[in-house]
Every structure is written in C-alpha cells, then in structure tokens.
Amino acid sequence: MRVLACFVLTLVCASASAAENVDALLEKASAGLSRTFALEARFHQRADFAFMDVPLESSGKLCFSLTERQKIIFWEYREPERSGFRWVDGDVELWTGQDSRPASDAEKRFLNGMTDQLLQWISFDPRRLKKRYHVSPGRTPLSLRFVPKEESALFSSIELTFSSDFSRIEELRFTGRQEDVTTIVFDAQRVNGELSEDCAR
C-alpha cells in the first residue's frame, strides 16, 4: 500500500512539476518574444512523409515587421522553386516563379487566416495559447509542444524550440494527422532591425 501511495505521489508531483515548467517556459518565451517586433531570417524546411521515399527539403526567407505604422509579413520559398507571398496590412501579393499577382478576395481571406495564425504565434500570448492548445514540454528543455484542443484538419501538433535567451523561435515542428513531420529551422536571424531589401520581391 505504501508503495502504491508513493507511486501516486510521485506521479502527482511529476505532473505538477511539468505543469510548472510549461508555465515557466511559456512566461519566459512570452517575455522574450514580446520584445521582438521585427525579424529577418533564413529558413530550411524538411518534410518527412511515410508515403514518400525521401524527405522533401526546401529553403527560403521569412521577414516580418510589426510596427504601429505598418505590419508586413514576407514568406518566400527560394529552393527548389521560387514562390511566396507578401502581406502588408491586409493586402496580399502572391507569386510563383516570376509571375506575381494580387490575391483575389477569397485568397486574401485564406491568407489573412494564415497570417492571423502567424501573428498570434508571434505575439505569443500564453493565456490565449493555453485556451486553444494543450501545452506540454517538448523534446528539449527549450521546447514546448502544442496540441489543438479542437481537432484540426491541418496538423495534430506543433512544437516550438526557442533560443536560449527566448528572444527567438529557432525551430518549428509540425506533426500532421498522418504522422508526417515537417520541420522548419530558422537561422541567420536578425531581430528588430530594419527589413533589408532581401525582404522585398
């Protein structure tokens, strides 16, 4: 009986401690990321699908600048093919290769939904995130795993890995509904600087 009680106690303490760690990590990340209003980074994406022989790799550039004056998000794949979008205060421009065009109303609504999600991750509000996701520790001490409380058709979980000073997100890891995994690693990050010309199409 004593053994069982110790076991239950250990379990309770362990889960309480994990919850504390998660909260502490969320707070640290929130504090660190809230200071970030502009970012310019290269990214490398690797997608592992069980139904493909080889992982799919691509790379590109992510920039954002969120000031009172203007909000800009720039996301471009450069390898193996060029495609992307630039969102400026709700107006969206899309391109594939050399062809560029403004988004239609319907595409705008779709991309606004995406950017809305992105902006929420950038703002990293722990209260809001905990409302929508079950948050648990990730694979590393600097990672957090988010599982949507309401089933999502798009992914089953997202894992974020932060820089040691919590000022940046270094890795994003999406696990799909069919256990496929897409990892996006950010490097050469420049925080809170003016966006370079490389962030314009």
């Binding site: 790799e57 992307g84 058709a153 509904r177």
Partner: peptide, 18 residues
Amino acid sequence: ARAALQGMGGTAAVPWVR
C-alpha cells in the same frame, strides 16, 4: 503535389495529395 508538400502546403496538403 510534391511541390505543394515541399512548400507552404506542408502537412495541410497531405490529405489532398493522397
């Protein structure tokens, strides 16, 4: 389909590709 998986579609494109 491959390009969609490799690009912005990522995991979201999987059900439609398959």
